Amino acid sequence: MDASSRIGRRTLLAVGGALPLAACVGGGGTSGSDPTGSGSGRLSYGDDPSQWAQRQVPEGPSRGTVVVIHGGFWRARYGADLGEPLAQDLTARGWTTLNVEYRRVGNGGGFPQTFDDVHAALELVQGPGPVVTLGHSAGGHLAAWAAGRLRTGEWTGQVEVTHVISQAGVLDLTAAYRAGLGSGAVHDLLGVGPEDPRYDLVDPRRQVPLEVPLWAVHAPDDGQVPISQSVDYVTAATAAGGDAELAEVTGGHFDLIDVDSAAWTRIVQILDGISPA
């Protein structure tokens, strides 16, 4: 990606105070030739047009699977095309990737549909090795939630997350609700305030400690999701005996999904340090 392409993309990402997260629309990826096997291709996990994931398999042995979960404050105007460059880069580095689309607020998502979809997509993971959830912004929330979802008793399955990388994730839904992040995005997602017990099921801050390592990658100059979301989560998780680490980077909110950025290099370094299962 050249400099002019990066500038154009970041301009799109930053447009509009009411659209504070990534502003590319629609589903990404292309249909593949192996929809049911273990090779590359688009996999459906339901009948809705948003219930799919694009799997890419590297040449040679796979290092494990990275499940890419896009952001966009859980809203339908943002789609899995945001995660496609990340998935392509990681596949070239030897990872099997699963770039997940899911129902969002405005196209049938919310509670519990959004969570049901991410859970169902995770159950598509095949093969040995670590299972890493990697999510940006609202996707960072879903990546962290996914690692603890089977403990809640509301979702049952076979695929367990082994590592989490949250890219400027919304890791405290209660604080995000009270701060009005994303023009009320948390209320739009859940339909209720923090006093409702559903927060106990889906708020990562209330689920510490996770049983797996989590890296909270965040920039102090993030103007969309404050770094306090990551700092406070890591503080609470480590105090509870969890394995959580804050990784500060530069570049605001969007460098974390720019594969030519220093922030992305830091994320790749974290993945390089994950040992095969």
Rank of each mutant, 00 (worst) to 15 (best):
L13K: 12
G184R: 02
S166M: 03
V225K: 02
G241P: 08
H187S: 07
G29K: 13
G29C: 13
T238W: 06
W155L: 05
D34H: 14
G106K: 14
E59S: 15
E211R: 04
P220G: 10
L189H: 04
H136N: 12
G242F: 01
E154N: 14
G94L: 01
L134V: 05
R178Q: 11
A80R: 01
V202G: 10
L171H: 01
L124Q: 08
T133M: 07
I227D: 10
P58W: 13
G41T: 09
V234L: 08
V66G: 05
D2I: 08
D172L: 05
A263F: 08
P226W: 08
R6M: 08
G184M: 02
S228N: 04
V131E: 04
S275V: 10
E123T: 11
G8E: 13
A80S: 11
D47W: 00
H136F: 11
A143Y: 06
G64I: 01
G17L: 14
G191N: 13
L21W: 14
G182Y: 12
H141F: 00
R63M: 00
S230D: 03
S261T: 04
L90C: 06
V15C: 04
T114S: 15
A247T: 02
H119M: 05
V268W: 10
A120P: 02
P194M: 12
Q126A: 14
Q54E: 15
Q88R: 13
A240G: 02
D117N: 07
P85W: 11
S166E: 01
G153A: 02
Q269G: 11
L173R: 00
Q158M: 10
A216H: 10
R266D: 15
A80H: 01
H187G: 10
C24H: 13
G169H: 03
Q207N: 11
G129M: 05
Q207G: 09
G252L: 14
A53F: 07
V131F: 03
T30S: 14
R9V: 08
C24Q: 14
T91R: 09
V231K: 07
P20Y: 10
W264K: 03
R266C: 11
D2R: 10
R198A: 08
L214F: 03
A219S: 13
G129C: 05
L134G: 07
G27H: 07
L256S: 02
G273D: 00
A92M: 12
